[in-house]
């Protein structure tokens, strides 16, 4: 990265814009969740916000994929978006969150496969 970009953050600005373009294509309830996620992740940001880029990208991918599947936002994120964000950033309580995601994964698989079997 050259000095000019470092000062203006212009390469970052472009990435932020890409995020917003992607977010704008989401269903309304997902867009609300996206705003909330950004708000909760903001405290984890460094001076430039560069450290948040991959985390936000992952969160956005999750929203895009699940929205395309037609899942409800609540099914995806649960009640506690703040806790979800802390876990994304590896903050306090992220271990127990990961355990919960793990359980969710196995429960969902068991439930959906059972439904499939009829």
């Amino acid at each position: 990265m050259n000095l000019w970009k470092a000062i203006t953050g212009s390469d970052l600005t472009r990435e932020w814009k890409t995020f917003e373009v992607r977010a704008a294509a989401l269903p309304a309830d997902y867009r609300v969740a996206w705003e909330e996620i950004k708000g909760h992740l903001f405290p984890y940001s460094d001076f430039t916000g560069r450290n948040l880029q991959p985390i936000l990208d992952g969160a956005l991918r999750l929203l895009e994929e699940t929205a395309a599947d037609g899942q409800g936002i609540h099914e995806v994120l649960g009640d506690d978006i703040k806790g979800f964000c802390a876990a994304l950033a590896g903050g306090a309580g992220s271990r127990s969150y990961r355990d919960r995601w793990r359980e969710q994964l196995n429960d969902n698989v068991a439930r959906k496969l059972a439904r499939l079997g009829g």
Partner: peptide, 24 residues
């Protein structure tokens, strides 16, 4: 097949959350 698809999707959702770096 449906059972594979279900498991794949649930896995992907989980992996997006924990976000290993070589995902992109």
């Amino acid at each position: 097949p449906p059972d594979y698809r279900i498991v794949y999707k649930e896995m992907q959702r989980y992996l997006f959350k924990i976000g290993p770096v070589d995902l992109p």
